[in-house]
Design a protein around this nucleic acid. Structure first.
Lengths: 212, 212
DNA sequence: ACGGTTTTCCATCATTTGATTGAATCATTG
DNA sequence: CAATGATTCAATCAAATGATGGAAAACCGT
């Protein structure tokens, strides 16, 4: 019982999987409207008709790319949760930032696509984005922002988004911000981590201090 | 000695100014590639040839819209600086957040266009964006992140961007985030301000405390 | 009211783009 | 090998899009 998308992910050498990977990169770099099916076909090194043969219309391929990205992101969040489980809050945040920044820098199309999805009004099927509130709730629980495990308050979601978006901002905006600080890639990554920890750890630490 | 853009701003009833205002809205909502000249003409209620008569090609109109947005944003930053000047740091940040959130909510195309400019790779003429490092440096000085007034460190710029982008994220992403927290517009604005203050004030307060 | 200038719009063009068709190629199975 | 089905591509189509030419309309000083 494997969906088409599942199958494409299983064999990364299959044409369908190669197209999906190319679509992730190109859609991530240029957004839905800035991307042509020819750009993706060219990236993969095939004809556009082959692309349409496997994925149907452009919109469907885009949605598959978004779904695929969300799947990867969800897995990464699980991996992070495993590592930080049980540690004190400040360390959890620090490790989460380190791991997420490293991961997203290696897969910049993830941050690009997520940001363009938030800010570009290109949401054909709102059902795709149900993953986002799930992720948000998981992170909120992991950061102990919920009294009970069930209800996640609006305030808790906003705090999670502030943190997550801060990370995405510096990854997706690297080509904009890095030239302005005139740093190499390694140094930029280090500075991103440092700055994000400086900003976000004290915020949540104040709440722990208040409780103790 | 008034540039064409100056003149258009002076008389907001002139056709050229009306087109520019429409272009700001539509480019802000859909980005450069998601916007057609026909969409803008339709928004203004004119023919596309009238649009081209006043502004030349699409790219030129887009650049004019970006320049115009940056100008408004710069003026708003000046207005904020006037109000917060001389106040203690925590209050400066709180008031800045209040004022900027209110302003950007009334002009959402500003945040939209800025975000899409950061994350969409649609930067034909990099010269337009020289305003951004200027704004960043001004804010850094205003937040006393620089030893001398001259040199602004990479770290200081990153801290400023973290704060500014957090604000832009919630404005430009309102159509995405607000339905998820199921709040009305007023309540959403209030929660945005509250959350941003909670996150950002302690970060900079720690440095003040360390110095004293 | 007149002549010239500016502004506006209708019709149209050339190019790009999403998508399809049908022929050729490749793979698989009996 | 032969035959059947799956895959790929060249050629092409229709619609959308950026842009222009030229006629009509509005404007303006005299």
């Amino acid at each position: 019982m494997t969906s088409p998308l599942e199958k494409a992910r299983k064999d990364p050498e299959s044409m369908k999987a190669r197209i999906l990977a190319g679509a992730r990169r190109v859609f991530g770099a240029h957004g839905f409207h800035g991307t042509t099916t020819r750009m993706i076909a060219n990236e993969v090194g095939i004809d556009i008709s082959t692309l349409h043969y496997h994925w149907g219309e452009k919109k469907d391929l885009y949605q598959a790319a978004v779904t695929d990205i969300y799947k990867d992101l969800g897995q990464q969040l699980i991996d992070v949760e495993k590592v930080i489980h049980g540690k004190p809050l400040a360390e959890r945040i620090a490790v989460s930032i380190d791991m997420m920044v490293d991961y997203l820098f290696e897969h910049p199309e993830v941050s690009n696509l997520v940001m363009l999805r938030y800010f570009g009004q290109t949401r054909h099927d709102p059902l795709i984005d149900v993953k986002i509130p799930e992720f948000t709730a998981d992170i909120a629980r992991s950061m102990e922002l919920c009294r009970d495990g069930k209800h996640v308050s609006a305030r808790a979601m906003m705090e999670v988004w502030t943190l997550m978006n801060s990370i995405h901002n510096f990854i997706a905006g690297e080509s904009f911000f890095r030239p302005m600080v005139k740093l190499g890639e390694k140094q930029y990554i280090a500075l991103v981590k440092e700055t994000l920890k400086f900003i976000h750890i004290p915020a949540f630490a104040q709440r722990v201090n208040a409780n103790s």
